[in-house]
Amino acid sequence: MAATPLLELRGIDKSFGPVQVLHDVGLSIYPGEVTALVGDNGAGKSTLVKCISGIYTIDAGTVTFDGNQVAVNSPRDAAELGIEVVYQDLALCDNLDIVQNMFLGREKKRGLVLDEPTMEQMAGETLASLSVRTVKSLRQLVASLSGGQRQTVAIAKAVLWNSRVVILDEPTAALGVAQTAQVLELVRRLADNGLGVALISHNMNDVFAVSDRIVALYLGRTAAQVKTTDVTHSQVVELITAGRSGTIGLPPEKPAGAAGYTDITPPGADA
């Protein structure tokens, strides 16, 4: 288990006009581990992800990557650091093929011209390294792929860039049982390859199946960061719905804006 986090967020605030969505949120992602980010609808998971990926700029707080404090102001900044996000709605273009989607925004060029052979070769190698052998042709339009295949392409797109941190937003939400298992296996493989993986999920089975750590968000605050082995199913559900469970989580009646999440599970907290 790695000692220092690859990506660490501290004291993140984010408001949209008068509405403060994130209050003093903290999150650490460790290399070689899957960190599950859980929370109810509106807890701020997606906003947090968009802050990490540079789509939103943060109002306050620090982002530390690999020990250095960094500013992420655009998706390009995040990509340069090696942070890749696989979004819930996939962000794939239906009218483009697999290779075109995987290189979207970062096309390989020779002079002015797109270097299609190189891109196709790299895409094929990446898919093969993820043990994906189900696509008929790399030049197939993404529109013609199944949900699981699309998710695979989206994940492969994130891996292609030798990324260090991959954040997956509800990767199994729309998938069947078999496809879910495939995608979770892929998620685990990413972490085993040494990447820092963050998995956003509503599904407790998925979370307990693959994650090493769990971060629970509650109404825009970090309720707890715990090791998966230290908590039970029902404790996590309580953290999601009430923000605390026993001695873990947000202290009751704490005024807004005050820092207050537990980083480790106190011994004997088992309910």
């Binding site: 789509i55 962000a91 009218n95 483009l96 979207l104 925004g105």
Partner: peptide, 18 residues
Amino acid sequence: RHIYAVGGNTEGARRAGI
């Protein structure tokens, strides 16, 4: 390529840094 991407999925293109 970016024109097709924006036409196919504007938000996706934005997230790809286009």
